[in-house]
């Protein structure tokens, strides 16, 4: 290795390090504030770590606030949305990838079109539609709305994964004696696990952190999701940063667990060896 490539590598690593620090610093700050006791929050100035740590904010959030309810609601909404969207998107993505049918072009165009509107524009009409159906102030309503908004993108995502799987694999399965659906379930689906994991993760995080519709469609604590719940730490005269950050740290846990669980499927290269590469 010559000096130029050592220098180049060092520069490259440095750039990555800068980016990682930049991306992770807010998370670090979240953690730092959450373990800083209230009396030190404003008195110590800007410090990287408080002189004294305390978990009182966590205790308060878990025991005395409605946070466990928000947490449970968010789990239900994000989990259900992720599962439903992935299921539907894998079917529709497969259809778009493999079949030619009448109106396919217009269907794709329509799905793209739905992605072009700012969500704010749609809040009022959606509220109007959901209200007579009794779907406001309910988790089901949120799941319906999130599912509708996430399906187009998830479909395109899944389609690209299906496109990456050679058509011959299905044809071989069909000749081996499989029906179209068996070929899909036994051959194609196992190979799409990375795509399914990516879609699940994407939709889960999108639903987990969605605020606008949760705020507009839900009133009161019983059906509030976690992002709405965070706002309860903002009162008219003060913001309880310690508790808010503690709640934030807790909210990170399921997302982290979720990605830990799916990351082994996210690893690419599962299809290697199917056809000559």
């Amino acid at each position: 290795m010559n000096s130029y490539s050592i220098f180049g590598t060092a520069l490259h690593r440095l750039a990555i390090l800068c980016y990682v620090v930049f991306a992770l610093f807010p998370l670090f700050w979240l953690l730092k504030v959450s373990v800083t006791p209230n009396d030190l929050l404003y008195s110590e100035g800007v410090r990287m770590w408080p002189s004294r740590m305390s978990f009182e904010h966590f205790r308060f959030v878990l025991v005395h606030s409605a946070f466990p309810v928000f947490f449970r609601n968010s789990m239900i909404v994000a989990g259900a949305t992720a599962v439903i969207v992935t299921l539907l998107a894998s079917l529709s993505g497969y259809a778009l990838s493999r079949f030619t049918f009448r109106g396919k072009y217009w269907l794709v165009a329509l799905m793209l079109l739905t992605q072009m509107f700012p969500l704010v524009m749609l809040v009022a009409p959606i509220f109007k539609m959901l209200s007579p159906l009794g779907l406001t102030n309910s988790l089901t309503g949120l799941v319906v709305v999130y599912t509708a908004f996430n399906i187009p993108f998830a479909t395109f995502l899944m389609q690209s994964f299906f496109d990456g799987i050679p058509k011959e694999l299905e044809e071989a399965a069909k000749i081996d004696g499989a029906t179209q659906f068996m070929a899909f379930r036994q051959i194609i689906l196992p190979l799409t696990l990375p795509g399914i994991a990516a879609t699940l993760g994407f939709v889960f995080t999108a639903a987990w952190s969605e605020l606008l519709f949760a705020l507009m469609l839900i009133s009161g604590n019983s059906a509030a999701t976690f992002p709405v719940g965070l706002l309860t730490f903002v009162s008219k005269f003060s913001v309880d940063f310690g508790q808010m950050m503690a709640a934030g740290v807790l909210a990170l846990i399921p997302a982290c667990l979720f990605f830990l669980f799916i990351q082994r499927y996210l690893v690419q290269g599962l299809t290697a060896g199917a056809v000559k590469g």
Binding site: A172, L191, A272
Partner: peptide
């Protein structure tokens, strides 16, 4: 059928 790309199930 034997395919040009082999089409083995990976």
């Amino acid at each position: 059928m034997v395919f040009q790309s082999y089409a083995l199930y990976p």
